[in-house]
């Protein structure tokens, strides 16, 4: 999928990050980096601190230990608004149309309504939302709402993009369709994407690298290169390479569970 980067051009660096919540360690000594044009997935059991890590990277929380640098910004509150973060729920405002919801980020930056409207319309075609721009969120299906939320996030035009189980609440058929669609949207992009998921197949399909996390406290225990050839993506779930990768990652996750 994404063009492999020869130079180590890290847009996102997390080094030695630890985080405690009410005295209980949630994350311990987490290191990871995502390069420009790279798609990295974080896989781990529920409660391993995946979402906390994204909250830290986005700037919603400040790390107790270690440093996070996203697009050159190390200050937590400085990263707010400079890292695109799509949360699990779509969080579309029910009193705004889809277009108005997508314009929100630009509106908060005081970009003129004409400019932001034009950008929303431009992007809406590839998101398959052009015909529903004037609809209200409740009129849309779950998959469409999720795409609208992603569009709102992407329109911030930040180089670092965080996705927290974007398709977690969707049915299997919609999820697969959206995964393939996301690949097509993000192909040849110059962003650094970090995806959090508990779905191993989703991680292999979308990512270049998969980081495997363990819980209590949350830490990274393994890293797997999952770049597939173009043909493997077409036949995805049944290709031998895919099956092999999935087996390997599941084994790493299971070993963790046994040791607990």
């Amino acid at each position: 999928m994404a063009v492999s980067t020869v130079h180590k051009d890290a847009l996102l660096t997390v080094s030695g990050v630890g985080f405690d919540y009410k005295g209980i360690p949630v994350l311990d000594n987490v290191d990871l980096s995502v390069n420009r044009g790279e798609f990295v997935a974080l896989v781990g059991p529920s409660g391993c601190g995946k979402s906390t890590l994204l909250n830290l990277i986005s700037g919603l929380l400040s790390p107790g230990k270690g440093t996070i640098t996203a697009n050159g910004i190390s200050d937590s509150s400085g990263r707010l608004g400079n890292v695109s973060y799509m949360q699990q729920r779509d969080l579309l405002l029910p009193w705004r149309t889809i277009a108005e919801n997508c314009q929100l980020g630009m509106e908060l930056r005081s970009i003129s309504a004409d400019v932001s409207k034009a950008r929303v319309q431009e992007l809406a075609k590839s998101f398959g939302l052009f015909d529903v721009l004037n609809h209200m969120p409740w009129q849309l299906s779950g998959g469409m709402r999720q795409r609208a939320a992603l569009m709102r996030t992407i329109l911030l035009e930040n180089d670092v993009l965080l996705l927290d189980e974007p398709f977690g609440a969707l049915d299997a058929i919609t999820r697969t369709a959206l995964q393939k669609w996301l690949l097509s949207v993000l192909v040849r992009n110059d962003k650094a994407v970090l995806l959090v998921t508990h779905d191993v197949e989703e991680a292999i399909l979308l990512a270049d690298r998969v980081m495997i996390m363990a819980s209590e406290p949350g830490r990274i225990i393994a890293e797997v290169d999952v770049r597939l050839s173009e043909s493997s993506i077409e036949s995805s779930f049944t290709s031998p390479a895919f099956v092999e990768l999935r087996k390997g990652i599941l084994a790493l996750l299971e070993r963790q569970e046994v040791s607990l």
Partner: peptide, 24 residues
């Protein structure tokens, strides 16, 4: 609180959160 977080990650100020999220 998740909606407030969403506004903050979009770079909203407290006044913007009040006007565009809390009041509506």
């Amino acid at each position: 609180s998740e909606s407030v977080d969403m506004f903050r990650t979009l770079g909203a100020t407290n006044a913007q959160i009040f006007r565009k999220l809390m009041i509506p």
